[in-house]
Amino acid sequence: MAYQSKLKSDEINNELNDVEHGKTFLNKEITNERMEKRILLDKVARKVFSLSTVFALIVLGILFYRIGTQSIGWLDLKFLTSNLSIFPEKAGIYGAIIGSVWLMAVVIPVTLLLGVSTAIYLEEYANQGKFQSFIKTNISNLAGVPSVIFGLLGLTVFRRLFDLGSSILAGGLTLSLLVLPIIVVASQEAIRAVPGFLRDGAYAMGATKWTTIRTVVLPASLPGILTGCILAISRAIGETAPLVVLGIPTLILRIPDSIMSDFTALPIQIYYWTLDTVLTPQYANLAAATIVVLLVVLLLMNSVAIFIRIKFQRRY
């Protein structure tokens, strides 16, 4: 490969050499004219390319503006504290908020426990053999599986096989499996970044492997693990497809009070209101208001992640 890319660069050099040799045969004016064209092209490209980058910004701006304006007049304290209703004016998302909180109460401990343990195993215990690379390939492939497929998995295993119904537990476990790769990869990176000399310090004091991991490696990699955890939660809290596939019911009027309760969550609420805007146009405003709540939550979580990253940057 190195040889091929060398060939490639040789080709390029030849091409450039040709240009240079050509110069002597060319009328200087022609060269200058060509040069101007090339420089102009370069300038135009720079503008166009920067526009591409800014395009993302513009779309983001429009999206926030549009959804923000749609939610005006609908998003108030009453909206946050009242329960669902078929009358748009009376409807609130209290139930959905509680549902999302419950979901995260399942997702956070499950993914943290499974994700960090998996990362510890891969980084500290597994020998660099076939099994380890098998698990690694497996995890990176899992990260690429569409979320709707996880919904089917949850539907078969948690809902039908384990008979958990459309409960918070079923939804939470499904989402946990979905975001597991995120937290595994982040924790692996954090653990790998703990310098060897810290481990040596512990081993030299007669610490066993597990003691070293518990007292030195994990505390030092905690900021990275937490950042990964927040990323995973931000993904989970906005996921809709797996929950819809699990068959989370449309209209839940009871506020969930245990992990076996039926529930609705913020994204589910957005989905059903969006679907029904044809019948009741005001539902679009309710959906927009719910989106604002969801985005604010995501923004807050990301700020915390950035804060952790800055605050705990290591200076070994």
Partner: peptide, 11 residues
Amino acid sequence: PTIVYGFFAYS
């Protein structure tokens, strides 16, 4: 979240 994009596309 993709649900937000969905809403944006449709509305």
